[in-house]
Nucleic acid binder design. Structure first.
Lengths: 193, 193
DNA sequence: TCCATTTGACTGAAAATCCGGTCAGTGCCA
DNA sequence: TGGCACTGACCGGATTTTCAGTCAAATGGA
């Protein structure tokens, strides 16, 4: 049972995925969420507030499908978990597509909207550190700075591949293959410093 | 002595870099160019006309810094040329920043606008093939498919890094370092198949 | 238990604002 | 004096934002 504001944020993610951040109309969002325009301002202050909260919401949601959810399942090796965390962002399911396309939009918007930058930078940092941590488990002898650099490359590559996938220039399977190879390539690098 | 319409296009490039394609306001453009709004419509018909001509203008300008310009300079080795082609897109000069912003905007817009996809896909393909060609000169024994995959990764990574740079989450020097290392990592991969 | 009071989520329409596009008119040069 | 480059006030449709008021649920006093 989603609360009203969650319901609005879910709708916002859908609208942003469909029309883009700059194509988001408050009235359309209200219709999509099945509420009045007034309620949106009641909960989120203004249009920017909608965007900020939606970014946060998308972020939280990404953690849900990114983290291993099933506690009964065989525990993953660090290497498997690494693949998991990265490849789960390249799936052609409505939820992931929605998240990726909203994320891409917010990233692009942040270029011109300082308000979004801080949240975006923080979320990116957390993500990079998560990946760096997993890399560190797979290659325990590698120095932290090198791990961080690899993590930055892998996540930035994933964003780039994701945009190409969503803008129709790259098949999802090929994107996944490229990313898997990139992980191998980076791990090979971490072997010999 | 720039003609009036060139003056408007230069201003448009600056405004797009600052506010994005969808953030471009005709009135702001007029102020930036130091002309009246009416004159803009006199020269370019409508907003779409402004955008079309500006994209063309930016495109023409990109060729200037992408191609090796100085014919007297020492000819570059393939490896140097490879670094060149990639790293030239990560410079903090107004011209490159403007072009990168516009490219990022275009990429992001294409997710929601099928009309742009074809042009974008074609331009991307040309770019990937150029990089694959240079990689092939540096590693003549590598198979074509492997070269292509490396080129796709490097260009996608560059796009990802570029977005992070422009959205303020990544210092340009660090972005350049990450990219340079990525080139090395990919070349190492091409050494041992 | 019953009803008066308060709270706060919610609505819808009005108001304010934004913005692309128009147009009557000005100055200038051939 | 005809026409071209140019101006800037203005228009109206689209969007955002505000706000007076409704309603249902919680509170609490007798």
């Amino acid at each position: 049972m989603a609360s009203r504001s969650t319901q609005i944020l879910e709708a916002a993610a859908r609208v942003i995925a469909r029309r883009g951040v700059r194509g988001l109309r408050v009235e359309e969002l209200a219709a999509e969420a099945g509420v009045s325009t007034g309620l949106i301002y009641y909960h989120f202050k203004d249009r920017t507030g909608i965007l900020r909260h939606t970014l946060e919401f998308i972020n939280d949601r990404a953690e849900r499908y990114t983290s291993t959810q099933d506690p009964d399942a065989e525990p993953l090796t660090p290497r498997e978990e690494l693949d998991q965390v990265l490849l789960l962002e390249l799936q052609d399911t409505p939820e992931v597509r929605e998240n990726s396309s909203a994320w891409g939009e917010l990233r692009a918007s942040a270029v011109f909207d300082p308000v979004l930058r801080e949240d975006l930078a923080r979320a990116t940092l957390v993500w990079v550190q998560e990946v760096a941590g997993l890399l560190g488990q797979v290659r325990p002898m590698a120095p932290a700075a090198t791990l961080a650099a690899s993590a930055e490359r892998l996540t930035a590559l994933l964003e780039g591949l994701s945009m190409r996938w969503l803008s129709g220039g790259l098949a999802i399977d090929h994107a996944r293959t490229l990313l898997r190879e990139a992980v191998e390539v980076e791990l090979a690098r971490l072997d010999r410093p």
